[in-house]
Design a protein around this nucleic acid. Sequence first.
DNA 1: CCTATTTGACCAGA
DNA 2: TCTGGTCAAATAGG
Length: 337
Amino acid sequence: MDSNSNNTNSIKRKVVDQLVEGYEFATQLQLLLSHQHSSHHISQTRIGSVDPDPVDELIDKILGSFHKTISVLDSCDTSVPMAVEGSCGDDLAAPVSCNGGDSGDSRKRLGVGKGKRGCYTRKKRWHTWTVEAKRIDDDKYAWRKYGQKEILNTKFPRSYFRCTYKPTQGCKATKQVQKHEQDPNLFQITYIGNHTCNVVSDQTQAKTTEPFDHGTIMDSDKTLDATICQDHVDANIQEQENDISNLIVVGAGMVKEEENNNGDQNKTYRESSSTDCDLSLAWQDVMMMFDDHQHHQNQNHYYLGESSNASHQFPSIDNDQLSSLFDYCPYEGTNAT
DNA sequence: CCTATTTGACCAGA
DNA sequence: TCTGGTCAAATAGG
């Protein structure tokens, strides 16, 4: 038990160090973006053959940092699976019937004309943010519409989109689009969850759907001024015209996330090797854990920045705080303290 | 024929 | 019970 515990602590330390490092890089990135993400970036990104700018370098560092983290976690213990939200494709590509027991293709038809449509559970909170934009394809991801709904006391219906690559890569990102009540030329776009698909690889494409530049971000608790760069990209992803328009983040918070139909998402584990998908998913998990943790402690949220210009502030947490996350970290499985 | 969208059915949660 | 979110069959479009 002692050796196990020592080993665990050592791994914890490594993980914590890497996560903290990632945080630092992310913070630097955010500062860079908020200060220099302006017109020159547009011309650069069009061509794609530019000198490696500090933004890209930082992103590489971030990814590397998290990659190391994943590696550490993976090598930690094969009996300690990675608890990730909807592993890259498997569970989402083949949702389980809510009738239970069934999996995979069982979703298709549970009964002619009267199956189990809309069968899902909503459990976990998920990172969301809302923007107002003149176009609904403000991000560089491919979306597929899966529903539309009249919303009570609103003039316009709400459209529901999910990532096109959900079936193939299990990307859980969704967005909801609704025309602005006062200004029908504007769309209110609520993004739910980060992309975990790997289709955005070109350097001109986004690192995340999350707006990072000029705009106004409002958390449930506080408002931050920021600026958001909007890349104009066709819904089918290929077009790379980067044009800036006013894109305003009007809200960010947590909402409940659709859970896989097996109703036991916390036990959805994956054992594959580390990929970009892993990094993203792991990050989401960490963020969720952090959020829950903060909730228990002092109701803090992700956006803790006080500076007026900083966009999308990351919380300033230290090693001890991160360490405490692992006290209830799902990655630890049954070994959790 | 294949893929995307539409739309009514269905379910979970408030 | 009502509403919002998702499913999936039907339909449209390339």
